[in-house]
């Protein structure tokens, strides 16, 4: 057991965490009958995906993806770095080293995912509110019952 944890869980614990959180979300999405609980499940699922992406961008010993800004002679440098594009070996500033900064791309993608998550959650809450106005319940099976028995169309 200890060997299993050291070899398989420890170097990949971020993936284990995301799989487990995702399973909780998926369970809530499939098995729960209450629509609000389904939405909570959807949010947990999204969180798992966000955790997965952000943990992919982690590098050992790296800092946040914000490079230090030029402090002095900002505008004079603008000319220098224009030249630097053509003469790669001669530079006023050392180029940032990729291994020193964590991967910015997953952060960007997850920023958009969070925003879409807010949008979908808002629309889903609006739909469930208008469902509640029509049916007086948010339980999925009760709503289906009402539709089947034809009460809704009266």
């Amino acid at each position: 057991m200890r060997e299993f944890i050291e070899n398989f869980v420890q170097p990949h614990f971020n993936y284990w965490a995301y799989v487990i959180i995702m399973m909780i979300g998926l369970w809530a999405l499939i098995a729960k009958r209450n629509l609000i609980k389904k939405l909570i499940g959807m949010s947990i699922f999204q969180t798992a995906i966000i955790l997965f992406y952000v943990s992919l961008g982690v590098k050992d010993g790296a800092t946040i993806p914000i490079a230090p800004h030029h402090v002095a002679g900002d505008h004079a440098d603008a000319h220098d770095s224009e030249h630097a594009e053509s003469h790669d070996d001669h530079k006023a500033h050392p180029k940032p080293v990729a291994d020193d900064y964590s991967n910015p791309l997953p952060h960007v993608l997850m920023l958009t995912a969070i925003v879409v998550g807010v949008a979908t959650l808002g629309v889903a809450l609006a739909v469930s509110q208008s469902l509640f106005k029509d049916f007086g319940t948010l339980e999925e099976d009760e709503i289906l019952e009402q539709i089947k028995s034809g009460d809704y169309y009266d």
Binding site: P65, I66, A67, P68, H69, Y101, P104, L105, H107, V108, L111, T112
Partner: peptide, 8 residues
Amino acid sequence: PNIVTAVL
């Protein structure tokens, strides 16, 4: 400086 903003 903020690479995330630049990419975004």
